[in-house]
Design a protein around this nucleic acid. Sequence first.
DNA 1: TTAGGGTTAG
Length: 607
Amino acid sequence: MKPNLLKSLSSSSWLSLFRHHKLSLFSFHTNCHNVANLQTFKESTSATPTHPNVVKLGLLNDIFTTNNLIKSYLKLLRIDHAQKLFDEMPHRNVVSWSLLMAGYVSQGQPNMALCLFHQMQGTYVMPNEFTFSTIIKACSILAKLEIGRRVHALVEVFGYGSDLVVCSSLVDMYGKCNCVDEARLIFDFMCVRNVVSWTSMITTYSQNAQGHLALQLFREFNHIRLNKPNHFMLCSAVTACASLGRLGSGKITHGVVIRLGHDANDVIASALVDMYAKCGCVSYSDKVFRRISNPSVVPYTSMIVGAAKYGLGTLSLRLFQEMIDRRIKPNDITFVGVLHACSHSGLIDKGLEIFNSMNEKYGVMPDARHYTCIVDTLGRVGRIDEAYQLAKSVQVGSDDDALLWGTLLSASRLHGRVDIAIEASNRVIESNQQVAAAYVTLSNTYALSGDWEKAHNLRSEMKRTGVYKEPGSSWIEIKESTYLFHAGDMSKSSQRKEILSLLRELEGRMKERGHVGVTTGLVFVDIEEEAKEEIVSLHSEKLALAFGLLNTPKGITIRIMKNLRMCRDCHEAFKLISDIVEREFIVRDVNRFHHFKNGSCTCGDFW
DNA sequence: TTAGGGTTAG
């Protein structure tokens, strides 16, 4: 239905129109807890000098003038005055409504914008493309998919399904609601696209763990030469490189950032700090970070997290102190980083001290992630009982439960605490998240304790109930090529011989250095490849330190052990292996990367 | 007179 046609329906309210189209928006009621606040605003605000003049001069009837006054209030960030004036208007038009909605969105109150939109439906004022793009943004911020879908339906009914800005907003909204395919569908059907619509789609991929598609689209945009990428798009591209650990692409994108003069942009600089850290170059992160004139909490947090993942706990703590000294308020994510740093560097007391002062000293209430960090800290050093008591004392949601108890489960396995591992795995399974991983870890814990029967039974149970764990995979990037390996499967590798030869050489040299008992002394019966690897890694710690180099009965597998988590251990492994391998390469698995160059190595987590 | 896209997270 086109807007012209709708004008003929303007004698009826929206509701009759929706009834006509069998569309109901009554669900908006449930999102309007703040409707009463609108009345409160009316009662609590006092007029500014300009406001009474408008009333005195009888200009309230002049919608154009009053709308401009609303706009002025919004520029002054006085949404309360804007609301009061809006309420006093005898007549409002679509601009009045859209302006106020945009005001609420820009001032961090998207729910109020939704309430206004709901109120607007009871009037005879029809929404336009400005109203829709604003209200879609509100849905996007709140990630309210169901409301977003209903608004999308209205967009089509009112004939704005081809509007460039509305469609870009829809792409963004679906992206923020993790509906990548729906976002792409809208993007593909757009008749006209601009840099914003492309950025919305690239960001959708980037924020939904599909960095390779983000970069593919970024390349496509540059190929068609529609326009130059701007700072928004470049930022998303840098984030995509970071998520993939693509150092080469990241450096190229950084070059584009500099060439196009966006290197002074703080948001891009923050993304670059994060990208270099995730790509194994924390020294580059530091260089970019130090060029930011007034770094906010975000780049500080990126640096803290980056340093933490390198086992540079003291650097993380120094950065934390620096930001406190500069009166930059840490947020919840900063504390995740700082606690992570303490955990990975064995700074237990410091971690506990910061954790206990979070709320009192910095006004940040610890949540499930912070508790999980502390459980991890205690668990790593073998204080399993304390970690268990802490985990039991926390009430969190099911998603967070999997993380919290999964962390304790890993620690229990590492320290051979079958009793705690059983309860922790049950808690993970109850949460319905990471179920297969919990089964495998528990099975391995049984195997490590010598209870092969229970390990076997658990595996059989997994097969019987159809619980399947995705095989682990690793990939090695050498120059421009990426070589992917799945656990226990080398058949697809075109360089199998070369890799086998290198592995045998490494194995031999390790044996020379006293790292014996590699693989040959172990017998595996009824244990799947994945489990074999983990068991081998635990039984031959030195081997695990050297990237889980395995020689299984079915062939050679390169794999980084999941239990290889202490970065200082990694550094030891790097020292060992860099003596042997004299070329640059990066070894990765889905979570971590290890970068060798000229005898030195760096490592970190991807996610 | 009104609208859309970017950074940190075990």
